[in-house]
């Protein structure tokens, strides 16, 4: 139950952050929570099913652009409607993409997802009438639970209502994912990861389960993508670029893909370390690249793996 205690403490710390931490640090928590939602979904595919997508920036971008489009062009400001629309759209786009991608594994899967991600990137870049091209589209301030908060100063809005809204979404997303990975469906995914042949002989539809996992992870990425929009107020194509897909895989690995909350820890460390390194030198990629190399070589289980390594915990448990 040590894990449960750590999670409760973490949640309490996040909830208390706006009361004690500086505004700067609280604002950094917003992209952290958004990425945490994305990574919970990504890890269903990476850690639990054994498929590494190099194209999930597609769904982040899709979610973010859905929000930008609805607030700017369709005059729909309700964040609940936006999240729902992004989830539905994410699923609709993911269905054909997943159907094609899950026919392959390992490197081919990664390459195919990368190609789809770049199709979307090129689309948002070139069809500028719809997306604003490389300048992006504004993401107007959404209303929360039906209440328009346009009168609030931007910082108050972000560190106040929007912060707790994001936290609530993250909490629900984590709860939902916890249920998924601990359901019979989740067990099937782990079996597929460890031994697809055996899973097949046990009567598990391997391709079908991979397909479901992909679609669920895409929905999570789209929802997380929406949450990324309001803090910056603008959505641009770099969200969908392939290096962004690489960065989120990096976050997952940094925290540890073998544990449930590992990716969440990874997102936290990534965001804060990046902001700190960038305040010291502008070359954060050099530092992070070296860090990634070290993790890949010495600590493939990530930070959470380093902490829990001594305990003979079964793989895939927090």
């Amino acid at each position: 139950m040590k894990g449960g205690l750590a999670v409760a403490l973490g949640a309490a710390a996040i909830a208390a952050a706006p009361l004690v931490a500086s505004t700067y640090h609280v604002l950094l928590m917003l992209p952290f929570m958004a990425y945490a939602v994305v990574l919970l979904g990504l890890n269903l595919l990476f850690g639990y099913t054994g498929l590494v997508s190099f194209g999930h920036a597609l769904f982040i971008g899709l979610g973010a652009y859905t929000g930008a489009f609805l607030t700017t062009h369709a005059k729909i400001r309700s964040l609940e409607v936006i999240l729902l629309a992004a989830a539905v759209l994410g699923a609709l786009v993911a269905i054909p993409v997943a159907a094609l991608c899950v026919r392959y594994v390992k490197i081919y899967f990664g390459m195919l997802t990368l190609a789809f991600g770049m199709v979307f990137y090129t689309f948002v870049l070139k069809f500028y009438r719809l997306t604003g091209g490389d300048e992006g589209t504004p993401f107007l301030r959404p209303s929360l639970l039906g209440r328009s908060l346009d009168a609030m100063p931007k910082i108050d809005y972000l560190v106040g209502p929007y912060y707790y809204y994001s936290l609530a979404v993250l909490g629900l997303a984590a709860l939902g994912m916890w249920r998924i990975v601990h359901s019979p469906f989740g067990l099937c995914l782990k079996t597929i990861r460890d031994n697809p042949t055996k899973a097949e002989t046990l009567g598990i539809g391997v391709t079908r389960h991979r397909f479901y996992a992909f679609v669920i992870s895409a929905i999570y990425a789209a929802v997380g993508g929406v949450l990324l929009g309001p803090p910056t107020g603008n959505v641009d194509p770099t969200l969908a670029y392939w290096t962004h897909s690489g960065n989120i895989v990096f976050m997952t690995l940094l925290g540890g893909f073998t544990s449930f909350f590992g990716p969440v820890v990874g997102a936290f460390v990534f965001i804060y370390l990046q902001s700190w390194v960038m305040s010291v030198v502008p070359y954060w990629r050099l530092v992070f690249g070296a860090m990634l190399a070290v993790i890949v070589i010495f600590a493939p289980d990530g930070l959470v793996g380093l902490v829990t390594r001594r305990r003979p915990a079964p793989a895939g448990r927090a």
Binding site: V52, F54, I107, F250, L253, R285, L286, A290, L292, A293
Partner: peptide, 13 residues
């Protein structure tokens, strides 16, 4: 794949 991605990040900077 991730190792080569690390190289991409380092080389760019």
């Amino acid at each position: 794949l991730l190792m080569t991605f690390a190289i991409v990040l380092m080389m760019e900077d």
